[in-house]
């Protein structure tokens, strides 16, 4: 069986129908010359993809993000507001494509969540304001302080996700609850909120917020997230 160049290329590009794929696979197994031709096409495809892939994790230049931020509707178009927009965009720049917008969503949602709970620190609020910071209180504080990712007590409102040391040196933990999810970092005796998202009741939303939080966490991490052992030791040593 012979195959023309276009067919072999189409095979490598995943464009052949199932029957042709079978026929080529069978022929490749029996014919070293054909196997080599297929290998060469595949190697070329891989080489090109590998050559250009690093572009997608480069930092995006300010001038490109500026085109988009300048276009966003804004009542205040003063220089300082534009500057703030640019700085905001700069903060959001990311080497992780999708992660970028996860991070943004998480940052923006902080205001939404605070609005939802208010800052009075009512008995049900998982947050309370301490100076300029929003810190965990009540059940959230308890979860961040005492809970391990592997074990969620029945009476806890929160599930713990990742525990990691941030570039700042602080221990941080991500959490997810029915009403709110986020990341808190240990600061003295408190867990200061770095990022929060509405928890949402729909599973797909939870999924999305978890992805967004993980993206934020990934950007914050000094190193890999802790495994269960390290997490337990960190708890025992008071999250130092």
């Amino acid at each position: 069986m012979t195959f023309d160049k276009a067919t072999i290329m189409a095979y490598v590009d995943g464009e052949c129908d199932a029957v042709t794929v079978k026929r080529i696979e069978k022929a490749v197994a029996a014919d070293p010359v054909l196997a080599e031709r297929v290998g060469r096409e595949r190697a070329l495809r891989d080489k090109l993809a590998a050559h250009y892939a690093p572009v997608t994790i480069e930092e995006i230049p300010d001038r490109l993000t500026a085109v988009l931020t300048a276009a966003s509707p804004s009542v205040d178009s003063s220089f300082s507001a534009r500057k703030a927009d640019q700085q905001h965009a700069k903060r959001l720049r990311s080497r992780f494509g999708i992660a970028q917008w996860g991070a943004m969503a998480a940052t923006l949602a902080l205001g939404v969540v605070i609005g939802q709970y208010g800052l009075g620190g009512g008995s049900n609020s998982p947050f309370v304001q301490e100076g300029d910071a929003l810190v965990a209180s009540g059940s959230l504080d308890k979860a961040l302080e005492k809970q391990l990712a592997s074990a969620k007590p029945d009476d806890s409102d929160f599930r713990i996700g990742l525990t990691f040391r941030a570039k700042s040196g602080a221990i941080c933990r991500s959490f997810a609850g029915a009403a709110v999810s986020g990341i808190g970092c240990r600061d003295g005796q408190h867990w200061q909120m770095v990022s929060t998202l509405p928890g949402g009741v729909q599973s797909d939303y939870r999924q999305a917020s978890s992805g967004a939080l993980n993206a934020v966490a990934a950007e914050m991490m000094a190193d890999a997230p802790m495994d269960a052992d390290a997490e337990r030791k960190s708890l025992e040593s008071g999250w130092k």
């Binding site: 090109l48 480069e58 995006i60 490109l64 988009l68 970028q100 917008w101």
Partner: peptide
């Protein structure tokens, strides 16, 4: 704008493969 920003890493790659030069691509 958000969707465009998400597309940017891929668009930059496409532009780079067309133009070769990083500044021309941007």
């Amino acid at each position: 704008e958000q969707d465009l920003l998400e597309l940017l890493p891929r668009l930059r790659r496409f532009a780079r493969s067309l133009t070769r030069d990083i500044n021309d691509a941007d």
